[in-house]
């Protein structure tokens, strides 16, 4: 799997590159700003781009703009956006890019290398990865007022959160020490409770759950 890294901090860029290479990913370029990122993507057309949201020159949201642009121009290139802080608006903008292949994670998640690399692989394979922090915020918000969410059992809420993070049923099963069959049972109960259409496509599943949680 060919990867390009966009990160302006040299130390972190190097660290990230080493970690990914250790896990068998082929880092074809590692660049410090959005402009170089665009050029590198054009040159290599990689399977995956991992980019910081905040990069020179303005240190605002260059990475986000570049990510959306890449998803538009290169449908087969997946993008994972890293940030020091995650929030709903960015999640919404990133999820709006069609056909998944999008990730939005806290930068701190890199440290849990195995889970991080698993997320990268899942996104590159057409899935979606949303940071647990943003999902937790959205779920907490929904629990305040949404009676359907309130009616879910704690276990079901755990499953719902992992669904929103873009985890597949098998990963949910592994994480919660459940059988896949049990997970399927939970998901179908959740769908019933929230009146969501049943969908096995990971990206559409994330979209549906996030849309539900974002309701006013």
């Amino acid at each position: 799997m060919r990867v390009i890294i966009g990160e302006d901090e040299a130390l972190l860029r190097r660290g990230l590159q080493l970690v990914l290479e250790d896990h068998g990913l082929d880092v074809v370029a590692a660049v410090p700003d959005a402009e170089a990122l665009g050029a590198a993507v054009k040159e290599h057309v990689p399977d995956l781009v991992v980019t910081d949201i905040r990069m020179p020159p303005t240190h605002t949201n260059e990475g986000l703009v570049a990510a959306l642009q890449i998803r538009r121009d290169y449908p087969m290139t997946a993008v994972v956006v890293l940030s020091q802080h995650v929030q709903r608006r960015y999640a919404r903008e990133l999820l709006a890019s069609p056909n998944g292949r999008i990730g939005y994670l806290l930068k701190q998640r890199i440290a849990n290398v195995d889970a991080f690399v698993a997320d990268l692989r899942s996104v590159a394979a057409g899935g979606t990865a949303l940071d647990p922090d943003i999902v937790a915020v959205m779920l907490a918000r929904a629990r305040q007022s949404d009676t359907a969410v309130q009616s879910l059992t704690p276990r079901q809420q755990e499953v719902l959160a992992l669904m929103a993070e873009g985890k597949s049923n098998s990963r949910i099963a592994a994480e919660l020490f459940l059988s896949e069959k049990a997970v399927v049972q939970h998901t179908s109960n959740i769908y019933d409770a929230l009146r969501l259409p049943l969908d096995t496509n990971s990206h559409r599943r994330v979209l549906a759950v996030m849309q539900y949680l974002s309701r006013d």
């Binding site: 608006r89 907490a140 918000r141």
Partner: peptide, 23 residues
């Protein structure tokens, strides 16, 4: 807040209210 720097007032206040412990 990062949202204020990166995405302006609307996004930052949205994040603020998202994280409120009461509706």
């Amino acid at each position: 807040p990062a949202g204020l720097v990166e995405h302006g007032l609307w996004a930052a206040v949205e994040d603020l209210t998202d994280r409120m412990p009461i509706p």
